[in-house]
Design a protein around this nucleic acid. Structure first.
Length: 642
RNA sequence: GCCGUUGUAGCUCAGUGGUAGAGCACUUCCUUGGUAAGGAAGAGGUCUGGGGUUCAAUUCCCCAUAACGGCUCCA
């Protein structure tokens, strides 16, 4: 007998060779029907795979992340079976589960899949699922696997096989489809009750743009129709939060073909948000000892040769313009300009840390296919600053920058993000990374220590650093699930030297400062795009382009409404008067749709009592208040940035 | 940049090988109504741009361009 330990601590004995499914059945039929896979000694297995030794066991269902992944992986195989039936002779690359669903990369030869055919594949998948085909696992000697795929002429699977050793190669077969696959899989196709193929896209083989492009089909599947319906509904809801849609509806920004792709035009409402963000940044930076600077949008070629950005990033910069025989570039980053301000005067250690801040305008020639609403643009305004400090000052400065991030995130209620510490790869020193092995290790350790001491959860990723030093990125996700770096905090021990920056230290010796690049609010573009989605267009009062709209019930009350408007403006509250001859219901609806936080309804009663009927966006009538009283409430809410 | 899809009024979208339509928005008039759409009339389009096929192209084909879905990239 073998001893099986369960997650609840129970230990039961079974015959050697018992399967996860058999154990499930011994517990209850209901459980057995739900089991998708089994975690045996920490490894996810087919529920049908025999267990021969003592083991810990968790039975995985749809409720488990690994259960879901297995389910989607099996769904990818089911899709492949359907695709192969409709397009005989296609070749498959890989078909993994992803965050929400699965995909399969397919070489269709010179064929293409139309939307209708996608529907057809989806229908066939449902039919095939109903056959309850079992996913059968078979261990195959490498030679046999190679000859199988050689015969098929499948260079993709042969390529996969190259990386595998004899003895670890398995095939899975369900219905008419056999695939080289590590597994595991769910018991049978009948568990897949609802399928939706979401989109078709091109994807480079092995993710390398030099390689051939395969066709990728994305899909998602569920154990019942209800969950699929809910998922589709959720997607619809997410689309409503999309900053591109909200930005248009709320008059925040627009694009124009004649201006150019990726060059946003900020409309009056969006400009208000920009100005409020800048006000916040200026206040915060002033408190933190920053000094503001302003630099031009262009610079001579030599500046970027000194910085090292040319030629490495030339492709991402707008082409040079030539003036009197000299090349000028639109700036893609502010740092070289700031370094020149540092270099403009002789510096003493007494001046450090020197913190130079600028909402700098940068232009980057992002690839056309990369542009994405406000999140990825070609003209951006960075909440940029560079801190020049000594090595001794570094940790404190870095910590202060981190504290600033957290302060901002609290104001905006940002809690869904991941802090990512990007490190260098020692093998690429001198190539991708500046060749300063000790400085790398030293600064990485400093950064890591600051994060740990500040109790900030973070993940570490190797080989993602900037060429001049390690960095911390704050990763966020857009409404439709795309990942972006919202803010960045970077160490730079390279550019100080490149620009021959130095300060005179206590020993009267020149010393190169360490530099911190930081952009806690990222760029106006990405940050406002993010905020639109984060707030679903409902900006807090202090950020709202329009804070109050006055809604007279009839034209008779316009004079009093004008009076109230005057008082609001005097109090520096962004207010407008809806003086259209519309009914109050209509005015309220329009104001609600524009997400104006406060409405002041004015009728006969309010005029007589010298009040306004306050209505809050999304919350309805709040009762009548004295004008001066509500103004002081709003002023407080604005000042506190609630 | 690559693969795929799309481009019709300010917005959302119908539609057709014989020079175009709806709703909302806009203008004017009527209405003066108490917490999410009052009524009427009107104005508004080089059907993304350029070529081609055709007696005739917004519609079919090609190229360009932009957006969208991905891939790649992201200082």
């Amino acid at each position: 007998m073998i001893r099986i330990s369960f997650p609840d601590g129970a230990i039961r004995e079974y015959q050697p060779g018992v399967t996860g499914m058999e154990i499930a059945r011994s517990i209850s039929e209901g459980l057995a029907r739900k089991v998708l896979a089994a975690r045996v000694n920490g490894e996810v297995w087919d529920a049908s795979r025999p267990i021969t030794t003592d083991a810990t066991l968790s039975l995985l269902t749809w409720e488990d992340t690994d259960g879901k992944s297995t389910f989607w992986h099996s769904s990818a195989h089911l899709m492949a079976e359907a695709v192969e039936a409709i397009f005989p002779g296609v070749k498959f690359w890989v078909g993994p589960p992803i965050d929400k669903g699965f995909y399969y990369d397919i070489d269709l030869g010179d064929r293409a899949i139309s939307e209708e055919q996608l529907k057809q594949i989806e229908l066939l998948m449902s039919d095939l699922a109903k056959k309850n085909s079992v996913y059968e696992r078979k261990a195959v000697p490498k030679a046999e696997a190679v000859s199988y795929f050689s015969e098929k002429g499948d260079e993709y699977k042969l390529d996969l096989l190259q990386g595998l050793n004899d003895g670890e190669i398995t095939f899975y077969t369900q219905g008419n489809f056999t695939d080289l696959c590590r597994g595991p899989h769910i018991p049978h196709t009948g568990l897949i009750k609802a399928v939706k193929l979401t989109n078709i896209a091109g994807a480079y083989w092995k993710g390398d743009e030099k390689n051939k492009q395969l066709t990728r089909i994305y899909g998602v599947s569920f154990p019942n129709q209800k969950e699929l319906d809910e998922y589709l509904l959720m997607l619809e809801e997410a689309k409503k939060r999309d900053h591109r849609k909200l930005g248009k509806e709320l008059g925040i920004f627009t694009f124009d073909d004649e201006v150019g792709p990726g060059l946003p035009l900020w409309m009056p409402n969006g400009t208000v948000v920009i100005e409020e963000l800048e006000r916040l940044a200026k206040e915060t930076e002033q408190d933190a000892g920053y000094k503001r600077v302003v630099t031009p949008h262009i610079a001579k070629e030599s500046l970027y040769l000194t910085s090292g950005h040319l030629p490495y990033y030339q492709e991402s910069m707008y082409p040079a313009m030539e003036m009197e025989g000299t090349k000028y570039y639109l700036k893609a980053m502010n740092c070289p300009h700031h370094h020149k301000i540092f270099a403009a005067e002789s510096r003493s250690y007494k001046e450090l840390p020197l913190r130079l801040a600028e909402y700098g305008t940068c232009y980057r020639y992002e690839q056309s296919g990369e542009l994405f609403g406000l999140m990825r643009v070609r003209c951006l305004h960075m909440n940029d600053a560079h801190i020049y400090c000594t090595r001794e000052q570094f940790a404190d400065e870095f910590r202060a920058v981190n504290d600033m991030y957290l302060k901002y995130f609290k104001i905006f209620g940002i809690d869904k993000y991941v802090m990512r510490l990007s490190l260098h790869d020692p093998a690429k020193l001198g190539k991708k990374y500046i060749d300063e092995p000790e400085l790398w290790l030293e600064t990485e350790a400093m950064v890591r220590r600051v994060l740990i001491e500040s109790n900030i959860p973070f993940i570490e990723v190797p080989d993602e650093g900037a060429f001049y030093g390690p960095k911390i990125d704050v990763q966020i996700w857009s409404a439709i699930g795309r990942e972006f770096t919202l803010a960045t905090n970077q160490v730079d021990f390279a550019q100080g030297r490149r620009f021959k920056l130095n300060f005179t230290n206590k020993d009267n010796q020149p010393e190169t400062p360490l530099i911190i690049h930081r952009a806690p609010l990222g760029t106006h573009e990405r940050f406002i795009g993010f905020l639109l989605e984060h707030y679903a267009g409902k900006f807090p009062l202090w950020l709202a382009p329009q804070q109050v709209r006055i809604l007279p019930i009839s034209d008779k009350f316009l004079p009093y409404a004008q009076e109230v408007l005057k008082q609001l403006k005097k109090a520096d509250i962004r207010a407008e008067l809806d003086d259209r001859s519309e009914k109050i219901g209509k005015k309220i609806r329009d104001t609600e749709l524009m997400r104006v936080p406060y409405m002041f309804v004015i009728g006969e009663k309010e005029v007589n009592e010298h009040k306004v009927a306050v209505r809050k966006q999304g919350q309805g009538d709040q009762g009548a208040k004295d004008v001066s009283e509500i103004i002081s409430i709003l002023k407080n809410e604005i000042t506190e940035r609630q």
